[in-house]
């Protein structure tokens, strides 16, 4: 590994930056969006003893099964999701409303489903694919 000699201090410097406290005022712009998600879903995707975490589609609908608890401030994204999901909503809309990347919201929501803080909710009225297509056609025509 001849690379060893090429990076005397750079790596140490990178390491220090990463370990910097996270309670600094969040920077506006790219840096925050790039760094934050890794902190947000830390551990979420780790293998679980109970089997793989449920896969959520972007249009899967979830609803909060409880109100935010007292200890929720430790995990602000969860608190925000619980607050927003008091009304059933799709994962993709949740991500857009929270301003978080879809992948992160999906991962956190899957974890919250597994622990029972969120619940999936299916359509109230079951419709077949043809019924949906016909209804969409009628709906679009009347726009």
């Amino acid at each position: 590994m001849n690379a060893e000699r090429q990076r005397p201090q750079d790596e140490a410097a990178t390491e220090l930056t990463r370990r910097a406290p996270v309670d600094l005022p969040p920077p506006e712009g790219e840096e925050e969006r790039f760094l934050r998600p890794f902190a947000v879903d830390a551990g979420v995707l780790a293998p679980r003893p109970g089997g793989p975490v449920e896969q959520l589609e972007m249009l899967s609908r979830v609803v909060a099964a409880r109100t935010p608890g007292r200890n929720e401030w430790l995990r602000p994204e969860r608190e925000t999701i619980l607050t927003h999901a008091q009304r059933a909503g799709t994962v993709v809309e949740l991500a857009a409303e929270l301003g978080l990347p879809l992948g992160q919201v999906r991962a956190i929501a899957a974890e919250m489903l597994a622990e029972g803080s969120l619940q999936r909710c299916g359509p109230t009225r079951s419709l077949g694919h043809s019924d949906i297509l016909h209804a969409v056609l009628v709906g679009l025509r009347s726009l």
Binding site: A88, T90, R120, C121, G122, T124
Partner: peptide, 16 residues
């Protein structure tokens, strides 16, 4: 248990 039906007060539509 995470999949069990909730009884929401408002109708939940299909998302297509």
């Amino acid at each position: 248990s995470a999949d069990s039906d909730t009884q929401p007060t408002e109708a939940i539509p299909h998302a297509v």
